[in-house]
Structures are given as C-alpha cells and as structure tokens.
Design a binder for these strands. Structure first.
Lengths: 126, 126
DNA sequence: TGACGTGTTGTACAAATGTACGATAATAAT
DNA sequence: ATTATTATCGTACATTTGTACAACACGTCA
C-alpha cells in the first residue's frame, strides 16, 4: 500500500470524515442526517466538504443512480494516529501523558468504561 | 473572572501558545528558540502569531526596553479543556474513551509513566 | 412526454491561516 | 555622535477554510 501522507484535515473536514467512517458508506443526505443537532451545516456545505475530502484522498465515491455514495478511502487507524499525533505535538509538545491524565480527570466516565480502563491498565505491560 | 469564550485557536497559534506557557514569560526570540527543530518557523512568523494570540486574548505583552515580553493571559487549564473538548467532538463525536484507549495503545510509555497511570486508575472512583 | 423533485457541479466569496519582507525605531558599540 | 545591530510594525499575499447559491442533469410520476 502506498503509505503516502495525505494532506492535513481541516476541523470541519475531520468532522465529516468521522461521519463517513461511522456510516461505512452513505450519501450526502445520510451524512447530513448524522450531524449532531448542535452542529447544523447546510447540505451544500457538507457536499463541498466531501468533495474536498475526496480530492485529498480520504474518501471515494461511487455513483449510484442519481446520488453519490461516499465511503472511506484511507485507513482509519492510520488517519487517527496521525491526527492525534499532530494534536499532541501542538498542544503538549508530543508528550501524550498529560493528555491522558487530563482526559481521565475531566471525562465523565460511567462505571462501565472506568472498569474497562482499570482492567486495561492493570494488565498493560511496559 | 470573565469566563468568556475566546476565539478558536489555529494549529500554528496553539503551538506557539504552548511555548508561551512553557516559558512563563518570554520574548519572540526566546519563543523561537523553544521551537522544536522539526518545526522551524521564521522569527517574523512567530511574531505575527504572537500578535494574533494577543488580539484573541491568549497572551499579553509588556514592553521591556526594546523587546516585548509575552506571557499567558488566559487560564491554561481552561484553554486545554476547551481545545481537547473540541478535538474529541470532531474526531470521536465527543466520546473520550476511544481517544484514551488509542493513546494507551499507541504511546510508548516508559515504565515510570505507566506506573503512574496504573496507580491513577486503580484508585479512581466512578 | 413534460413537469417535478432531488442531487451534483461550478462557482463564489469573505474570513482565517501560514508565512514573511521592508521600513522604522530603539540600543549598543565604537 | 555615527554606525551596526536588533526588534517591532505595518503590510502583504497566496492558500485554505467555511459556507452556500444558482444552474444544470437525471430519474419519476402523472
């Protein structure tokens, strides 16, 4: 696989890409419907964002009749890794620990998730 | 304290702001010197970024002789919280757990930090 | 077959971003 | 004082980003 670095994602693009991952495959309309109520963006705007994501290589589309069906075109894990990495670099100089502690502190974790984390770290080896 | 939402930070601004936090107080030159070798930005660019950070309310400056000495003007914890929150929203739809697990998985934690995390989670209550 | 809805394309555009040069002002060295 | 050194300021500018309208295409239903 051609592991070339894709162009950076803008915040809005990131948001849309997340929805494409969530859907697996979906039309512009379906992506719109998945938008959180808080974050209302016009259909046309989502369209543009998807177009740009495609140009950048993050999604592809296939024409299904009239509509376009979009689907991921890049390894999600890889994109996440890079995006998180960049974020940690900028805000914490590359050290992930402060972020982890911050998240652990400020996130309202339900008992279930907390248990998962406890277990995860209990058995994690150096 | 006037808890008003400051304008969003751009990636480059975030990076510079981190250095101001790191320094406590510092001139443009000192900020430049703290830039990681990878991320070389011209003096003039750092200057502009600091100017914008000041306009947005993230830093202040006091003239010390010829040079300007910049220092933080916003609560770091608060800024971090908001920045991280936005990031989690965009990339994970607001759920911090996937990010925590991702970090735990992909970060090379030395034994010391791992111990800290183990302890942290062991005694964390829901 | 012609009007209707739905979706896509092209295009636009102001604001934000990243980056930096040239002019000017203040300092320090000679 | 005159010059060399620095730092700031104003300004600039190509891109990118966020947002979206108008025009055009393709099936669909009457």
């Amino acid at each position: 696989m051609s592991r070339k670095r894709l162009p950076a994602l803008s915040p809005a693009e990131t948001e849309i890409l997340r929805l494409v991952w969530l859907l697996g495959r979906g039309t512009v309309q379906q992506v719109c419907d998945k938008l959180p109520p808080r974050r209302r963006i016009a259909y046309a705007t989502v369209q543009t964002l998807l177009r740009r994501l495609e140009k950048k290589g993050y999604v592809r589309h296939e024409s299904q009749g009239k509509a376009h069906v979009f689907s991921p075109a890049a390894e999600r894990e890889e994109v996440i890794r890079r995006t998180v990495g960049d974020f940690v670099d900028r805000l914490f100089g590359g050290d992930p620990l402060p972020l982890m502690l911050h998240l652990a502190d400020h996130s309202k974790l339900d008992a279930d998730n907390l248990k998962r984390l406890k277990k995860f770290f209990a058995k994690k080896k150096p």
